[in-house]
Design a protein around this nucleic acid. Structure first.
Lengths: 188, 188
DNA sequence: GTCTATAGTGCGATAGAC
DNA sequence: GTCTATCGCACTATAGAC
């Protein structure tokens, strides 16, 4: 197995399998490496820690989000620019990826350690989005508030999408959540 | 030292000192226990893990928040009830506690591990707030959205308060942040 | 690729309070 | 004497150093 290609992909696949089979806590890094035909040492060459094996790839999402925010019309108000970013994210959440997303979400929900990691990834996304808003001329604290609110909308939309893949898809869920937030803010 | 009173308080004080002196990562649990005149084993009797020594007491804040939300006038819309909760929280952030809060915040800012823990504590607060809203008859996803938005407002207000203790205090910062969020949501 | 430090746990012993 | 906080030790897994 030693020089088979895609060591990282094999490690990710092995990790997902084992986490589903025996649970996250009951799986050691050595177990994952063994199933992938590699050693523990190699695992840590690819992933900074055990949790990270489930989160690699989030930088791409952040980039897509930021690019869409940056390219939104200059006259678009902050939350409208955020909505463009969310819809760019939505492109990643297609029907084909639904199964993987749901399995991954179930694993994360089973472990506080993994929830912590998820939250800090979302916080990093929010920080990047806030920076993109500031680059558009939005001041503080408006930029941080708009970015965090958008991530909240994303979390709600994502958890609904995972629980029930409606035919209208992720985009509609995002729009509904954002509308609900606007309605809440409009109430006295 | 074995039977001196307030072992937990001594451990917390020792931890804060050492984290400020040498940094969080460079401090071992054995170091903290030694300075408090106790052993590593005793540390773990009081705190589930090393990070937790900086977060004990957050349950009280959650309770205060939830109580205020529950007691808000029945006709108050969701975000108004959340505002009541935030102001109840604000009672804990007085001028006397400012120094401690700032030191603690600086330590947390220095370590990703601690930031993760802070985020999950805030998420727990948001979940409790959402439950309090549902008990008031607010449906989903409105309850989750309103609760998360309120925690966002809290984070912004808190970070501004830590950076600069203005005479108007925490309450004014909360109100300003919430007003800004409402303004953002009102824009097309 | 091995070797080590540290976090965190289980269990039994012990010291002091009452 | 009992009760309980603390301790000592042995152990595993993560993570990083050499």
């Amino acid at each position: 197995m030693r020089w088979l290609p895609d060591a990282m992909g094999r490690l990710q696949a092995a990790a997902l399998e084992l986490f589903l089979e025996r649970g996250y806590e009951a799986t050691t890094v050595a177990d994952i490496a063994e199933r992938a035909g590699l050693t523990k040492r190699t695992f840590f060459r690819y992933f900074a820690d055990k949790r990270e094996v489930l989160f690699i790839g989030s930088e791409r999402l952040v980039e897509a989000f930021v690019a869409a925010v940056t390219q939104a019309p200059a006259e678009a108000p902050p939350l409208a620019a955020m909505e463009a970013g969310l819809h760019a994210l939505g492109d990643s959440f297609t029907a084909e990826r639904h199964r993987f997303a749901a399995e991954r979400a179930a694993i994360i929900a089973s472990s506080p350690e993994l929830q912590e990691r998820e939250l800090i990834k979302l916080a990093a996304m929010a920080a990047a989005a806030a920076a993109a808003l500031r680059a558009r001329g939005v001041g503080e604290p408006a930029a941080t508030l708009a970015a965090d609110a958008a991530i909240t909308v994303f979390r709600v939309a994502f958890s609904r999408w995972v629980a029930d893949d409606r035919p209208e898809g992720f985009r509609a869920l995002t729009r509904e959540s954002l509308d609900t937030l606007r309605m809440l803010a409009a109430a006295p």
